[in-house]
Computed example of a mutant assay.
Amino acid sequence: MATTPHSPAVQLTEHALAYLHSAALRAAALLGVADHLADGPRTAEELATATGADAAHLRRALRLLATRDVFREDPDGTFHLTPAADALRSDVPSSMRDAVVMLTDEPFWRPAGQLADTVRAGRTVFEEIFGAPYFGHLERVPAAGAVFDTGMAGLAESENDPVAAAYDFPATGTVVDIGGGRGGLLRQVLLRNPGLTGILHDQETVLRHHTLDLPGLTGRWQTHSGDFFTTVPPGADVYLLKRILHDWHDDDCLRILRTCRTAMTRPGSRLLIVDAVLPQGNDAHPGKTMDILMMTSLNGRERDESAFRQLLGAAGLKPSRTIPTESTLSIVEAVAG
């Protein structure tokens, strides 16, 4: 029986081959194709010359991406930027190029290929593949660690200002960004709230590349190196945990949250968990995709409101409200219980 464009056979085949879209996207990002279209449309031959690629093969990869509105091909073979392709440029605000390279890098795609083994075992098989847990692997392989650091910073740039804008921060006081990476979220919070000071807490190797040294922030921030499993700066008014808890198993999350609870000595101190909050039902949500990535590589997970409430209660914290943002993330606010 012949198949139709929307038949189950075609649908399942497309799903089975979806990894080729990721592969084509990674190739375009690594070659810097979008950068070479910034001044206007170009043919595959022109792009191949500019990127050092084979013209025929490059066209085929870009043709596939154009089916998902990443680039557009004219009948004469000329390729254009689309809004999604423009975000692949390395020189635009909130560029996604580094994030795409990170999300399609070997430490994520190889464990995903063994998802069935993870589902059987009830845990990631990352260590069997790479010889160390995820973050241990990044420490042992500096090149992989650099891809992660730059990729996370790139991914966060599209989220930081919407998160900072969604919450009513106090007029004065101190904000601690725990595991805050290069400080993108803290930077936006301080820029939007001139009465606040901030502390960026992360590992020393990460803090060296912070982005807080701006004229408008002079004298309003400091860095603090440490391990959020054991200690964070005490006595702040607001603590931030952005894209941290989803990396970890519940037991590890409790260690982090209890460390935060111990540090929350100031009356009225608040903890803001910035993560995806999964909706119920069958509706699509980016967090449901990210949940599989967390499961296969890190033993982490994305959570719904009920799971956050359980974690917070076990850590001696009381959830007060959940605030949506103009990104895929929400803010789960908690106070000392």
Rank of each mutant, 00 (worst) to 15 (best):
T4W: 08
P5T: 01
P5S: 02
H6G: 08
V10Y: 05
L12N: 10
H15E: 15
A16S: 12
S22Q: 13
A23T: 08
A24C: 12
A27E: 07
A29C: 10
V33H: 05
R42G: 13
T43Y: 02
A44H: 02
A48F: 12
A53L: 11
R59Y: 02
L64M: 10
T82I: 10
A84N: 09
A87F: 04
V92M: 11
A99P: 01
V100E: 07
T104C: 15
F108M: 01
W109T: 04
R110L: 12
P111V: 03
A112Y: 04
Q114Y: 03
T118F: 01
R120W: 05
F126C: 00
E127Y: 04
G131L: 12
E139M: 09
F148L: 13
G151A: 14
L155C: 09
S158K: 08
E159F: 08
N160V: 06
N160S: 11
N160D: 11
A164L: 11
A165W: 00
P170C: 13
A171I: 03
D177A: 11
I178H: 00
G179A: 15
L185K: 06
L191M: 09
P194A: 13
T205Q: 14
W221P: 00
Q222N: 12
Q222G: 14
F228E: 10
F229G: 12
F229I: 11
V232F: 08
V232D: 02
V232P: 02
P233R: 05
L241D: 05
K242G: 04
H246Y: 06
W248H: 03
H249W: 02
D251C: 06
R255M: 12
A263F: 00
M264R: 00
P267R: 08
L271I: 09
D275I: 08
N282S: 15
D283Y: 01
D283E: 15
M290L: 15
L293T: 06
M294K: 01
N299R: 07
R303L: 14
R309A: 15
R309S: 11
Q310S: 13
A314Y: 00
A315G: 12
K318Y: 02
P319A: 07
P319Q: 14
L329V: 03
L329R: 09
G337T: 09
G337P: 13
